[in-house]
Amino acid sequence: MVDKPPAIEMREVWFSYNRIPVVEAVSFTLAQGDFLGILGPNGGGKTTLLKLMLGLLKPEKGEIRILGRPPKEARKYIGYLPQETDFHLTFPITVYELAIMGRLTHARLGRPYTKTDHEKAEMALHQVGMWDYRFAKVGELSGGQRQRVFIARALASEPKILMLDEPTSSVDPQFESDLYELFKELNKNITIVVITHDIGVISRYVKSVACINRTLIFHEEGKITQEMIEATYQCPVDLVAHGLPHRVFPVHKEID
């Protein structure tokens, strides 16, 4: 247990789009088994941070280690839920085919899915309550149902880290609490990183909080309440500036 590499390690990570910095000097270490909530205003760099961890973007400066490896090598241990799930709605793909896609991390190139792959996909669909819809076309589902299937896809990969970009943005409130109970259960074995706007979720389920608005403030395990509330409220306040991409956001007040 002692030798376990951190789930996520970032050291002085910088990233910008068209010379406009989005992520500045971000450093933090997340231990395995943690449940991290990432808060921040729109355009504050939340999704960029996630993409950096997934290795979809390369940092301009700094270093990222996922489970002690470079992000690209760690991908097979990551289950990922994208923010948008309403793309390609006419695409001919069934619920089952989408769920088993999560097994690609385990499957070999050019080989069919194995029996284990099929079992895991079935289990994941049961977990999100979408097994009965397995033959349905994904584009014909409601937004919430589709979100569940995408979550099943992330679960099917049996990840060591689950990265969720606003997992409950289009699901109904009942399923939202079911979902977080499921995450809580899963968190006994795996690390979870969730981007969310929901402060209630943060206070109930999350163990650590990071607040990002170009720079990142990390609130470690244990240090909850006071700082956390400050951080969460600081972020929505910054939302006032959203929609003005060139305006420099107010800098976070460092909390010590």
């Binding site: 994208p82 793909i93 896609m101 499957a107 050019g110």
Partner: peptide
């Protein structure tokens, strides 16, 4: 041979990339 990979990259290129396709 590459049916599952083609399906993944056609539907969700970013996800396919993340999973190592």
């Amino acid at each position: 041979l590459f049916y599952k990979e083609f399906l993944a990259m056609s539907y969700d290129e970013q996800f396919a990339e993340v999973t190592g396709v």
